[in-house]
Write a protein that binds this DNA or RNA. Structure first.
Lengths: 138, 138
DNA sequence: GTTATTGCAAACAATTTGCACCCAC
DNA sequence: GTGGGTGCAAATTGTTTGCAATAAC
């Protein structure tokens, strides 16, 4: 349950937080604060700044992470053990997740050559999804 | 010469544009509009909005690309034949380029499994650079 | 009861834009 | 000379913050 997630991190259990986490859980793909708020408002009443504040808190506590930033907008998702990457469709904006991160070996090789201690990476693909490709052919 | 780049794209050759391109050329690593402007002002007089406007124009014309967005700031670089990726140090913000993009095979495999036509990808690593690691040990 | 969380409005920072002037062609 | 480029200031947009009211523990 997401109440456990919260108390384990020393955060108070509030309607807003429970709702945010369950939305992210159900969604299983990156979402912007604004869109998350739209879904949130259908169920709960609350303020957009509560969303922002909680996304920040949850990110600091490693419950949530910023998956990517596109056109000045941050996209959030639950931080999972096995993290994921996405492909974003340039036409319709659809974001679909990729299973299995392919970066393991690449990353450790890079640590050797650069001396960096690599803590995370961002990998996003952009392209055109099958449906939009069909539309283009018309 | 960067004048050729501009006329080839049907853009007028102006002081600002020549300067922006040569700064990006010399730098060979992603830079924010604001920092680019600081370097720019040492040589030329001009306005920050000219920088933004030209970065936009040059991006539209595929001369420049947004390498990544971090904390709400876009980092630009010349769009090169062989594109590059970077590692960003979480402590000092240093950005260092990685030679050779490792994504070739991964990308084509992904096109097969997802049906997407992949046009580009973003790959950024974050970690701690050797110097900052030393400082932490103190 | 105490402290963290929320709502609201105002503040911010990066980026964009409207308009008058200016320069490249 | 004309149309695109620029400077300046004002607007816009995603996000953050101060403060008083409220809810979690």
């Amino acid at each position: 349950m997401n109440e456990e997630i919260l108390s384990k991190k020393g955060l108070k259990i509030t309607r807003a937080r429970k709702s945010i986490i369950s939305i992210l859980e159900e969604l299983d793909q990156p979402i912007s604060a604004e869109n998350l708020y739209k879904i949130f408002k259908e169920k709960e009443k609350g303020n957009l700044s509560t969303i922002y504040r909680n996304l920040k808190t949850l990110t600091d506590k490693d419950v949530v992470e910023i998956a990517c930033e596109v056109d000045g907008i941050s996209y959030y998702r639950l931080k999972q053990k096995k993290h994921k990457h996405s492909i974003i469709c340039k036409k319709c904006g659809k974001i679909i997740p990729i299973e299995n991160c392919p970066m393991g070996q690449i990353q450790s090789k890079l640590e050797d050559t650069t001396g960096f201690k690599i803590e995370s990476h961002i990998l996003e693909f952009r392209g055109i999804c099958p449906e939009c490709q069909k539309k283009e052919e018309k």
